[in-house]
């Protein structure tokens, strides 16, 4: 069992992706299947960008064992009022600054769902959001 933690600074786009990049390096070193690595880090990166784009601060907690990777993103921020609505493709509350970085088209959460083996979102409006991405390592399902 391996555990890693990475801080994520809200609004700091120059560093957005650092945590996901570390996860990619770790999984590569473990010799995980490249397709699974790609789905994992794309989901993690979408989540990391969401924290940078919407929250004040946050962290990524990564737990890895032989069979699975669990990535938990926790942030302090505005939270999500209506998770079902936020999951709809095209729905976005992103600022113009976020859009200038090439994001904010309302595709992040649905793409996380497509890539993750399991995705769980909890949010308390005005406080923050917790997103858990679970990936199974010994399978190639989920295309």
């Amino acid at each position: 069992m391996e555990h890693h933690e990475f801080n994520i600074e809200g609004g700091d786009f120059s560093r957005a992706g650092y945590a996901s990049s570390q996860v990619k390096k770790i999984l590569k070193q473990m010799g995980v299947d490249v397709g699974i690595i790609k789905r994992t880090v794309v989901a993690a990166y979408e989540g990391e960008v969401n924290v940078v784009a919407h929250a004040y601060s946050g962290a990524m907690y990564v737990d890895i064992n032989r069979d699975e990777v669990q990535i938990e993103l926790r942030d302090e921020g505005p939270g999500i009022e209506d998770i079902e609505q936020a999951m709809q493709e095209g729905y976005s509350t992103a600022s113009s600054a976020v859009r200038e970085m090439g994001f904010g088209a309302g595709m992040g959460l649905s793409n996380m769902k497509k890539n993750a083996d399991e995705l769980h979102i909890e949010s308390e409006p005005g406080k923050g959001t917790k997103v858990v991405i679970r990936m199974l390592l010994n399978t190639t399902t989920g295309d």
Partner: peptide, 9 residues
């Protein structure tokens, strides 16, 4: 930077 990060992922 996010162009490069996106390519990386």
């Amino acid at each position: 930077m996010q162009t490069i990060r996106t390519a990386e992922m």
